[in-house]
């Protein structure tokens, strides 16, 4: 049990990048994000929002990593949690970005107008480009998981995918972590990937915060 928890912990360490993000219906948002910080950008600021698990933090981290060397690229996640002082800092940062001195990527749980922040910060966030990051549909998740499993060299049957999608948490980070864990579990136990193996891992990990 301990070992398996560790296994899951390890798999969560995979760094979020643009490559391991499944676009789904977010192609336009991804295009805007890819442009942010480059001369191709239509705007200096971009706001992404979406429900938990939709992938906004993933994208934020991926962008931050890509522009890690650039001091004028700023990414702020969970904007709704900023305290009063941090909101003012964001306000100033936004103005700097508007003036062309910085690039700004902000993510939050809802559309700018719905945020419980200072009005002047809120309206500024709604000024720039904003996109809702839409979570993948079940079919898209199925395709994404299947791809991920194939990359690990362990093709999954539709039954296994159905089983995962009906029993586990269905946000992508959890599902991807699960595929990675299945891979490790299969290697450790030296058993091929089968539905019983999937079932066994899931049952054993029910206590995990997956």
């Amino acid at each position: 049990m301990n070992m398996r928890q560790m296994v899951l912990g390890l798999s969560e360490g995979a760094p979020p990048t643009f490559d391991n993000f499944v676009p789904g219906r977010n192609a336009a948002a991804l295009a805007a994000l890819a442009a942010l910080g480059t001369p191709a950008a239509a705007d200096r600021c971009l706001y992404l929002w979406g429900e938990p698990g939709s992938g906004r933090s993933h994208l934020l981290t991926a962008w931050r990593t890509r522009h890690a060397g650039a001091g004028h690229c700023h990414a702020i996640d969970d904007v709704e949690r900023l305290d009063a002082a941090a909101q003012i800092a964001l306000f100033n940062l936004y103005n700097r970005a508007r003036a062309g001195d910085a690039w700004l990527l902000v993510a939050g749980p809802c559309a700018p107008a719905q945020l419980t922040l200072r009005d002047d910060v809120k309206s500024r966030l709604s000024w720039g480009l904003s996109f809702e990051i839409l979570p993948l549909t079940d079919d898209e998740k199925r395709a994404a998981l299947s791809n991920r499993a194939r990359e690990h060299g362990m093709p999954m049957t539709p039954e296994m995918l159905d089983y995962l999608l009906s029993r586990a948490r269905r946000d992508m980070p959890s599902l991807i972590a699960l595929i990675d864990a299945l891979d490790m579990f299969s290697l450790e136990t030296k058993r091929p990937l089968t539905l019983p193996l999937v079932r066994e891992l899931l049952n054993q990990n029910q206590t995990l915060p997956l």
């Binding site: 805007a32 239509a42 309206s123 500024r124 996109f131």
Partner: peptide, 21 residues
């Protein structure tokens, strides 16, 4: 309806969308 920034944000988004697609 609430403010000009929101309008401009929407327009920005519309233009980006039309270009992208």
């Amino acid at each position: 309806r609430s403010n000009v920034r929101e309008l401009e944000g929407a327009l920005r988004k519309l233009i980006a969308f039309s270009k992208f697609h």
